[in-house]
């Protein structure tokens, strides 16, 4: 789970200097969540840049500051990059005020990535909640673009309400893909909702994908992750068959500023992708 391209791209010069990026498209996912399609202003860098699913970057609005988000697009689709964010603080509010054509700063990719070599030939169970689908969809498209390398695919995704479902265009695409078992759920539906209701961990238990030759990849709010792991264990998944990404407050993204340190782990440097087996071995339960 190492980022092979980690130092190659950024070793050239000052690691804290952002690249200037241009926003090419904005998609309103939910009332508070937006996806930005963006690209390097310097066209030379578009070909040089590479990343892996699960990696993150530091995004900035000049004059406001930097914030950390994963790259939510797939490395198999190189036309542009995407990131998805919820409007919660100073930087995310400033990002939400930007329009197409605006410039932002970007540095990355940082961190490790989803273990594609471990996933190949396996049955994959993707479990996502809310905006937690952002890192997961990078991997899902990555897998679907190389469909023959993987076995059965389950995607179980949920949000609080129908209005909180992110990436509805992806949910439709995956739902229409005959090689994917797609289940969408909401905690509570509304009058027009005809789909499933129930929390993600409960729905996972009902769908009950087999643990045999399988890997579960879980991304979502911490509370969902905490309730999902026990369900997976009940279904026969061992901790090393469960993969997730951890989210911590970060500033530098490169293991120096200190704040994502839990036990002897720096989430930015050693993660953000961990197996549940690794997480269980952490000295600290502050994850």
């Amino acid at each position: 789970m190492t980022a092979s391209n980690r130092s190659r791209f950024l070793a050239q010069g000052n690691v804290y200097l952002p690249h200037i990026m241009v926003i090419e498209k904005i998609i309103d996912e939910t009332p508070g969540v937006r996806t930005f399609h963006f690209n390097f202003k310097d066209e030379k860098l578009r070909d040089e840049f590479s990343f892996e699913s699960g990696q993150f970057g530091e995004y900035s609005v000049f004059g406001v500051g930097e914030a950390t988000f994963c790259i939510s697009s797939s490395p198999t689709r190189r036309d542009h990059l995407e990131f998805t964010l919820q409007r919660v603080g100073k930087v995310t509010n400033a990002l939400h005020r930007l329009g197409v054509g605006a410039e932002i700063g970007f540095r990355g990719p940082y961190g490790n990535s989803f273990p594609l070599d471990l996933l190949q030939g396996k049955n994959l169970v993707f479990v996502g909640g809310g905006i937690g689908l952002a890192p997961l969809r990078s991997l899902i498209w990555n897998v679907l673009d190389n469909r023959d390398k993987y076995n059965d695919i389950h995607i179980i995704y949920g949000a609080r309400s129908p209005a909180d479902l992110c990436f509805k265009y992806d949910l439709d695409a995956w739902g229409n893909n005959e090689t994917v078992n797609m289940v969408t759920t909401v905690d509570r539906g509304d009058e027009s909702w005809k789909g499933r209701e129930g929390f993600v961990p409960q729905v996972l238990e009902q769908v009950a994908p087999s643990a045999e030759n399988a890997i579960a990849i879980v991304c979502g709010p911490p509370i969902m992750i905490r309730f999902t792991f026990p369900v997976l264990e009940k279904l026969g998944f061992r901790p090393e068959q469960m993969v997730t990404t951890l989210e911590k407050r970060m500033k530098c993204g490169i293991g120096k500023c200190g704040r994502c340190n839990i036990g002897n782990i720096y989430v930015c440097r050693d993660g953000p992708v961990f197996t549940y087996a690794q997480i269980k071995s952490f000295i600290s339960s502050e994850y």
Binding site: F62, G63, E66
Partner: peptide
């Protein structure tokens, strides 16, 4: 441990 932040006045600023 350090923090990173921006300051900007009109069209010029610093990180």
């Amino acid at each position: 441990c350090f923090d990173i932040s921006d300051e900007m006045v009109k069209k010029e600023g610093a990180r």
